[in-house]
């Protein structure tokens, strides 16, 4: 019995023919094909990972963004360790106090360089030429970071945390939001701090970097055509 007879009289298709048919299906439609086409059009790899950058990138001002991301990496890593071992460990043991301090100071650096990045982009009017969504995502990251830091202060499990939580409860109540955001509810604050808010920040930072890559770094105010040619700077900036 031949293969065609075994399959009910339908001859088996050669592998190459199946591959060509699948490719043409991708081009014509189908959710997978449509998604692949959209990603290829919207996120071309030469824009996501450029090997050259414009001449004006050669400035320390464009380093603030990537330093902020480096600080965020340390915040997340130290935070994961703290979450594993718990409050008694980070208050009592010497290595716990060290990791706790690492978490605190990397947060300080995260905020310092995020604000420096904000200053740099503000004075360069970084929202120009279709970059308003990039700017707005940055604003949202900043606001969520403030809430994350606030829930972090409350999650310290010490007198400082209690003092902040009790005072903040009155402040939040005065806004009318106390019913669903309660600083005295440790479970809610800790859950927001270690899960929901860090995930939101991480995803938005990834989106922010992709937006910067697609549009490119905004040219300085008053830049001429000569300034827009590729320069000698390596393509290392995340700003």
């Amino acid at each position: 019995m031949t293969a065609a007879e075994r399959s009910g009289g339908i001859p088996p298709e050669p592998i190459a023919a199946v591959a060509v048919a699948a490719e043409s299906t991708d081009e014509k439609g189908g959710w997978t094909g449509a998604a692949a086409g959209w990603l290829e059009r919207r996120l071309p790899i030469h824009k996501l990972l450029p090997t050259r950058q414009p001449f004006y990138i050669g400035s320390w001002v464009y380093v603030f963004g990537v330093v902020t991301i480096a600080a965020l990496v340390w915040v997340v890593l130290s935070g994961v360790i703290l979450a594993f071992f718990g409050p008694q460990w980070w208050h009592v043991s010497s290595i716990g106090r060290f990791v706790n301090s690492l978490h605190f100071w990397s947060v300080q650096l995260f905020f310092i360089f995020m604000v420096l990045h904000l200053w740099g982009q503000y004075w360069a009017a970084g929202w120009r030429n279709g970059r308003a969504p990039t700017w707005m995502v940055g604003v949202v990251i900043f606001l969520i970071s403030v809430v994350t830091a606030f829930t972090g202060y409350i999650s310290q499990q010490n007198l400082d945390a209690q003092w902040i939580a009790v005072n903040a409860k009155d402040a939040i109540n005065s806004t009318g939001a106390g019913a669903f955001f309660n600083p005295l509810n440790f479970g809610q604050m800790y859950g927001l701090h270690v899960m929901l808010l860090p995930i939101a920040i991480t995803l938005l930072v990834v989106l922010h970097v992709i937006q910067v890559r697609l549009r490119g770094v905004v040219a300085p105010l008053g830049a001429t055509e000569a300034d827009l040619v590729d320069g000698d700077s390596p393509a290392a900036s995340g700003s």
Partner: peptide
């Protein structure tokens, strides 16, 4: 300190980056 870092970032030369005139 933030203001100082910002001003230094504006005025200090970036390593490995040649001036516009050299280019």
């Amino acid at each position: 300190v933030m203001l100082l870092i910002f001003v230094l970032a504006l005025v200090l030369p970036f390593p490995g980056h040649r001036g516009r005139r050299d280019h």
